[in-house]
Simulated scan of single mutants.
Amino acid sequence: MKKVLLASACLFALAAPASAADLAARPYTKAPVAPIAAVYNWTGFYLGIVGGGAWQNASDIKMKGGFVGGTAGYNWQTGNIVFGVEADGAWADASDTVSILGVSVKSKTDAMGTVRGRIGYAVNNVLFYGTGGYAWVDNKITATAGAVSISDSKWHSGWTVGAGVEAFFAPQWSVKGEYLYRNLGGETYFSGIGAPLTTGTLEYHTVQVGVNYHFGGPIVAKY
């Protein structure tokens, strides 16, 4: 029995230094550190520029052309949901000319704009949204017969609905792409000279892009 105990003690004594050496040889590694994630908060006021193209699918007159202007808005974010209000106004050059009983009639939209609400879903620096609200255009009709030409301008009001996507590409700068359908009520032109011309509903499809500057710095560092 004593011999067995003595042999066991010898084996333990020989194994202990080897185990200690193994432990000392293991390299020291630090625990992984989670990277800092940039979380974009969309809340705040912004200004920007916007421009694009507009066209009609009407059966008679089909105005089309471009526009460029400015944008102002404000966003509120709660969780991933973003609510906002936005207004824009633009100089426009969308027109078409038709002939009616030998008279050349040109319809031209000189300006357009909207005042809309927005609601969207934010995925960090990208916002997907729907939008809708009030729309207007300033339109001018010119009738020409030979050397005689008369013109009249009217303000058309209506509504708009659409959707878009906006993304930050720098701490306070974002770019957006947007489609809007605009439905404007008809108006009566030339009533003051006894030759009234009543238009039907003006329907515009517009595709626009914009760049916005957001005040207040929308990035929040999250560990």
Rank of each mutant, 00 (worst) to 15 (best):
L5F: 15
L5Y: 13
A7C: 07
A9W: 12
S19E: 14
D22A: 15
K30C: 11
K30M: 14
P35Y: 08
P35T: 10
I36D: 10
W42L: 03
F45N: 01
Y46T: 01
I49T: 10
G52N: 09
A54F: 03
W55S: 00
W55Q: 04
Q56V: 03
A58G: 07
D60N: 11
D60W: 08
I61E: 05
K62Y: 03
K62L: 01
M63I: 08
K64Y: 08
G69F: 11
G70P: 04
A72V: 15
Y74I: 05
N75W: 01
W76H: 09
V82S: 03
F83C: 04
V85T: 03
A87M: 11
A87P: 07
G89Q: 01
A92L: 06
A94D: 06
D96A: 07
V103S: 13
S104K: 08
D110G: 09
M112G: 11
G117R: 00
G120Y: 01
N124I: 01
N124K: 05
L127E: 04
G133D: 00
W136A: 06
D138W: 14
D138Y: 13
D138S: 13
G146M: 08
G146Q: 10
S149V: 02
S151R: 05
S151A: 09
D152F: 04
K154T: 06
K154L: 07
S157H: 14
G158R: 02
T160K: 01
G164Q: 01
E166V: 02
A167P: 02
F168V: 00
F169L: 05
A170S: 09
K176T: 06
G177E: 04
Y179K: 04
G185M: 06
S191V: 01
G192Q: 12
G192I: 10
I193W: 09
G194V: 02
T198R: 08
T201V: 12
Y204V: 02
Y204T: 06
H205W: 03
T206L: 05
T206F: 00
N212W: 09
H214C: 02
I219V: 15
I219G: 01
V220R: 12
K222S: 15
K222G: 04
